[in-house]
Simulated assay, not measured.
Amino acid sequence: MTERFANSVFERALEDPEEAVITRPVAETDGLQPEDIGVLVHLLLLSPTAQATGKDLVAMMRALGWKMSDERFAKIAKRLTAAGHLLRKSVYNATTQRPEWRYRAYRNPANNPQYTANGIDALSQVSDENRKKRGPEPGPASENREKRVSPGQSRKPLFPASGAETAKSGFPSDDVSAGQSRNPQKAGSASPPPHPPEEEDSSSPNPLTRASESLPSQRAAGPEFPREEVEAAADFLQQMRQWQAGASTARRAAPRLLRTMRAQGWPLLADMDQEHRELLEADILKNTAGAKSWTRCLPGWVDDLRRYRKPAPAAAPAAAGPDPRHLALLRAACPACDQSGWVEDDDDDAPPRRCTHPGITVDTAKERQQ
């Protein structure tokens, strides 16, 4: 490392925030409404160097389609200030030569010096009052100071939560620290009793142990499908005629295929003949038109498998007609028709009719020909 580089100065660049992370304690802050969280997110997404008046912010939120008025925004800002997400202080404006209110948004109230300072002062005041009522406590004074809660930590009250004392605490929202959960249990409330054990047959030597051993959640669950069936399904997907899946794709899709086949009533692959395998392949690959990546589409095609229907039996072949050579013999031996097989009559207005060669068989026609 050169001396010039070693003496270089590094600093963080100012970038506009692209996201605002809301933690569970912030989302569950007691006293805040859903719209308050939305406004807080909007403030946290502003540029760190940007400044906007209340009217400007209302106009910006209206442009986003929000239902927001000046009075509504003022109430929201009041609740956010009480929760420690907004710092409010008076600043002298040299341009207007008048003081004005300045607000600064904080995601974590523990970083708001005004909020944490109010919390520490209130806690100190209540602690002093309780100490006077209880009298001096054994131990050095430093031990009592260590019990105080620092900014950003849990503010679970260490004193009885009586009505008079609670009113004197002066916390901005409730007896909760900045940035921590605002749903504490009330001091002095008893914890619920443990759930009684389930009744068991008195003949059991150890009923509690027997009950715990019989819980389904503690049993070892076996595989959904036998290994042979999974391997057969993967092998089928790799040996289809129209398209063959790769080894990894087939292993991932095999359990899905077996699950869908079972739900749709298809027989096992081990019991299928070639005709059923071709039918299964045709049903899986029935909607491949326009697909760019068959590997990505295969899970969806497998899930879209139709209900099994037994293949219809093959239609019997049509009966073969008479031999053309026999027809020629019949027509030549029959006096009622011409060489094309049409009946010869004197009625020119009647439609043409095919001759049935009455009284003439192939054998008699051969005899006449001889």
Rank of each mutant, 00 (worst) to 15 (best):
D56W: 06
A50I: 08
S90K: 05
S69G: 07
M68W: 06
T96W: 00
A59H: 06
W66A: 07
K55Q: 14
L64Q: 15
R72L: 06
A50N: 14
N93V: 08
T49V: 14
A82V: 04
Q97S: 12
G54S: 09
R72N: 09
G65M: 03
W66Y: 11
S90P: 03
L86N: 01
T96M: 05
M68E: 07
L80T: 05
T81D: 09
G54I: 07
T49G: 08
R72M: 09
L64T: 05
L46F: 14
A82H: 09
A83R: 01
T95R: 12
A74E: 13
F73R: 08
R88P: 03
S69D: 05
A52G: 08
F73L: 12
E71R: 10
G84F: 03
H85P: 12
M61A: 09
E71N: 10
L45H: 01
D70P: 13
P48L: 05
G65V: 00
K67S: 12
L57Q: 15
K78T: 02
T96D: 11
A94W: 09
T49Y: 15
V41N: 07
L87P: 02
N93W: 02
S69Y: 02
V41Q: 13
R62P: 06
W66Q: 14
H85F: 05
L45R: 01
P48H: 08
H85V: 02
T95L: 11
R88G: 02
S90C: 06
L45K: 00
K67H: 12
M61C: 07
G65I: 02
E71A: 10
L64N: 12
